[in-house]
Structure formats: structure tokens, C-alpha cells
């Protein structure tokens, strides 16, 4: 393979992969160097991407460029001074005397998020989740198994919700239902665990393929 930036990149990537996997044996300097380098590169990447994807198109191009460039054809969007000011207020968090100004920014962001979330959560999560839970058990075309599944889902949703009601003592019928809720939760946690393990294993397979195929060329 000729020595190109691509081949050097493969060697570097393989080196980093092996350095990080060396942690499986024990903590060592190679792992720590790779880990800290990754943190640094990720930080630099995040800052640059934030500039190119958010600050440049949403702030620099519509506000700064028209103000300072004579060739600009569009009028500056002065309304953008408001979020700029709020952004600067947030950075004042590090000032002892002016850190209280950052509260204005946090209040804006938190209030905005709270207001936006209320109707959308009601619509997208509560109503959209209740609707399929209350389907007819039998309308003519289903098999007996799908009807049982529909009933099981309804039982699962109700029992899990009852389990999370802590203002009522879990005794009698409530206690029995909350016990069923625990069983549903345990199956769900087990399923989520299995699913997560398999996702990580597929990443591991990807890294092994990278080492054997891209780096060593053993796999074709």
C-alpha cells in the first residue's frame, strides 16, 4: 500500500484502537494518552462544528457580515442582538460580580423549553401512547394471539403506572397490580440490557473488522 494520508490515518486509527483496548489488560500510559487525545480532538471538533453549523449561519452571516461588509446585499438582522446578548450574559457566569446576569439567559432557555415541551409532550407522548394501548381486543380480523398481546400491553401499561404511584400504599389489589408491574419492568430491563449488549458487541465487531480488514488486510 503506498504511503498516503489515508494509509497513515489507518495506522493512526489502528494504533489508537489497540491503545484503548490495552485497558482491558490493565490501566496504562498508552490508554491514557489515547483517551486524553480523544477528549481534546472531540473538544476541538465540537467547537468548530458549533461555529460552522450554528453560530456562523445563524449569527455571523445574518448580523456581522451585513454590518461590516460593503458588498453585502442583505440588511443586518438586528433582532439577533438579543440572543447574542443572552449568550454573552451566560459567559458572565465566570464573573463574580456579574454572574447574576446569566440567570436571565437560563430563565429564557428553561422557560422556552418548558413552554415548548408541555403541548408537545401531551400530543406526542401521552395521547399517542394511550391511543394504541386502548385498541379493541377483537374486531374480527385478528388472531387470538394478537388479542392476547393487546390485553397484555394494556395490563402492562396500567400495572407499571400503578407501580409508580407512591402516594397510595401498595396493598391488596393495588399491591398485586404493582407486583405485576414489577414483572413487566424486569422483562423490559432485561430486554434493554440484552439489546444494549448486542449494540456494543456490534461496535466491537466493527473495530475488529477495521483491524483485520482495513489495517492488516487479512479479511477481504
Amino acid at each position: 500500500m503506498p504511503f498516503t494520508s489515508h494509509s497513515f490515518g489507518i495506522i493512526l486509527g489502528a494504533g489508537l484502537t489497540l491503545a484503548i483496548y490495552s485497558f482491558l489488560y490493565q490501566d496504562n500510559p498508552a490508554f491514557k494518552i489515547a483517551e486524553n487525545l480523544y477528549v481534546g480532538v472531540s473538544l476541538g471538533y465540537t467547537i468548530i462544528i458549533t461555529w460552522f453549523n450554528f453560530l456562523k449561519p445563524d449569527l455571523y452571516d445574518p448580523l456581522i457580515v451585513p454590518v461590516f461588509s460593503k458588498a453585502a446585499t442583505k440588511e443586518p438582522q438586528y433582532a439577533l442582538l438579543i440572543p447574542s446578548l443572552l449568550g454573552i450574559f451566560m459567559l458572565l457566569r465566570f464573573s463574580k460580580s456579574l454572574s447574576w446576569l446569566s440567570r436571565w439567559t437560563f430563565a429564557f432557555v428553561v422557560g422556552l423549553g418548558a413552554g415548548i415541551s408541555i403541548p408537545r409532550v401531551i400530543s406526542a407522548f401521552i395521547l399517542q401512547q394511550i391511543k394504541p394501548s386502548l385498541q379493541p381486543v377483537f374486531s374480527g380480523s385478528e388472531t387470538i394471539f394478537s388479542s392476547i398481546d393487546t390485553l397484555l400491553i394494556l395490563l402492562g401499561v396500567i400495572s407499571v403506572l400503578i407501580y409508580f404511584i407512591f402516594s397510595v400504599e401498595h396493598k391488596g389489589a393495588i399491591g398485586k397490580l404493582s407486583k405485576i408491574g414489577i414483572w413487566f419492568l424486569m422483562i423490559s430491563f432485561g430486554a434493554s440490557f440484552g439489546y444494549t449488549v448486542m449494540a456494543r458487541v456490534s461496535l466491537l465487531i466493527g473495530r475488529i473488522q477495521f483491524l483485520l480488514k482495513d489495517w492488516l488486510g487479512i479479511l477481504q
Binding site: F125, I130, I187, S188
Partner: peptide, 14 residues
Amino acid sequence: PNLAAKRGILLGVS
């Protein structure tokens, strides 16, 4: 069962 439990959790979280 996973869907039922997730739906119950999601409703509670919402």
C-alpha cells in the same frame, strides 16, 4: 412486555 413497560415509563415521565 417490553413495549408495555416502556409505554408505562414514558407516560409517567411525560
